[in-house]
Computed example of a mutant assay.
Amino acid sequence: MNRSREQIMEKVKEQMPEKRWLHTLGVMETSVRLAERYCADPVKADLAAILHDYCKYWPIQEQANIIKENGLPQDLLDYDKELWHSHAGAFIAQKEFDIHDEEILDAIRYHTSGRESMTLLDKVVCLADYMEPGRDFPGVHNIREIAEHSLEKALIAGFDSTIGFLLSKGKRIYPLTVLTRNDLLMQVSDN
């Protein structure tokens, strides 16, 4: 990595409005706390959280071009634009910040959709994004309570909330999100 944590944070802060920066700070704090609680690497959790929304406020066409031109999953373009920044962000984190740790890149890449067989770091960053202190939506307090005992059950509650919201708005659901939820359900039932 050719930049310090502080330099990366400054660059990220420049890419987003103040409200989103405050969200990012909340995700950083929550990621580290969850990492420490569930024995994930807190340094990796912190870095993935810093970068998780790096491209979120880039022009939509720029995000689409990054996906189209760099071999990223083309099916993303058929679904909600809210998914695009995660894959674009992981790509840019590698190119712009010289981050090559696949665990960190995957945590950025899958923080919105999830994926089957999520790593511990994937789970930590995804869940932190759902439940950081600035989040306020129906059910978030329940997700926070569940997270005290189970990453998987808290993520299921988070994905249930997201899927329910998308259904209520008549939106398409990215298939990987459904597969993720089903995989988490199987993990919980196996315990």
Rank of each mutant, 00 (worst) to 15 (best):
D80W: 05
D53L: 02
V27A: 11
I60V: 15
T24E: 06
V43S: 15
L76V: 08
D41T: 11
D80G: 10
E82M: 12
V43P: 14
A40L: 08
C55P: 02
Y79T: 05
C55S: 08
A45H: 07
A90S: 12
K68L: 04
G26V: 07
M28I: 15
V27F: 01
I92D: 01
Q61R: 14
W58H: 09
E62A: 12
H23W: 01
Y38G: 12
A64D: 06
P73H: 00
L76P: 08
L34T: 07
L34P: 12
L51W: 02
T24R: 04
T24L: 02
Q63M: 06
L72V: 01
D41K: 03
I50K: 06
I92P: 01
L51Y: 01
F91D: 00
D78G: 10
V27M: 04
P73M: 02
K68D: 00
H85E: 06
T24K: 07
T24G: 10
A88F: 03
L25R: 15
P59K: 11
I66P: 00
D78I: 07
L51M: 03
K68G: 02
R37L: 13
A90N: 04
A88Q: 03
D46Q: 15
K68A: 08
Y38L: 02
H52A: 05
E29M: 15
L77V: 11
A88K: 00
H85T: 08
L72K: 07
E62P: 01
A45E: 04
V27W: 03
K68M: 07
W58P: 04
I60A: 13
K68Q: 09
K44F: 05
H85I: 11
A49D: 05
H87D: 14
V32P: 02
Q94N: 14
A88G: 10
H23N: 12
R33W: 11
K56N: 09
L34G: 11
Q63D: 07
T30Y: 06
R37C: 08
S86A: 15
F91I: 07
P59D: 09
V32I: 11
W84D: 03
R37F: 08
E29R: 15
E29G: 13
M28A: 12
D46I: 13
C39H: 12
W58R: 00
S31A: 08
A48H: 03
A35R: 09
A88M: 04
Q63P: 01
